[in-house]
Amino acid sequence: MGCPPIKYAGDVRKVDGVDPFRHPAVMEWHEYLFTRWSSHRRIALFMPCTAKKPYGSSPTHKIAYAIAGPRVQVYSISEPMLLVPKEFEECYPFNGYDYPPELMTEEEREEFVELLSRALSSASKYHEHMVAVLPSHHRRVLEEASSSAGVDVEIHPYGRLAFRSVKEAALRAEELARG
Rank of each mutant, 00 (worst) to 15 (best):
R42A: 12
E79S: 09
D19V: 00
E144M: 14
V151K: 10
P24W: 06
V26C: 02
P70R: 14
S117C: 13
R139Y: 04
S39E: 13
G159F: 05
A51K: 11
S117R: 02
G2E: 14
P85K: 09
E144Y: 02
C49I: 06
A149L: 09
S38Q: 12
S165K: 04
Y92L: 08
T105P: 12
A173H: 14
G159E: 08
H30I: 15
V131T: 10
L115V: 02
M130D: 01
Y97R: 06
A68C: 02
M104F: 01
F94E: 03
V131D: 14
Y99M: 13
I6C: 03
H23F: 04
G10E: 13
A44P: 10
A132R: 04
F112M: 00
P135L: 06
G56T: 03
S117H: 06
Y32T: 06
P80M: 05
E89W: 14
S58K: 13
P70E: 11
S121R: 15
A9P: 00
K125R: 15
D11C: 02
R71P: 00
A173K: 08
S78D: 14
R118S: 06
V133H: 07
A119P: 03
G56R: 13
F88N: 10
P80V: 00
I77C: 07
E111A: 10
S124W: 13
K14M: 08
L171W: 01
D19M: 01
A132Q: 08
E89R: 13
V151P: 07
A66I: 00
S122G: 12
P24V: 09
F112T: 01
R118E: 03
F112N: 03
L45P: 12
V153R: 01
E79L: 03
E168N: 13
K167Y: 15
S58N: 12
R41E: 06
G56D: 05
G69H: 08
L82T: 01
I67S: 01
P157L: 02
I6K: 05
K53Y: 09
S78I: 09
P93C: 05
A123E: 04
M1S: 07
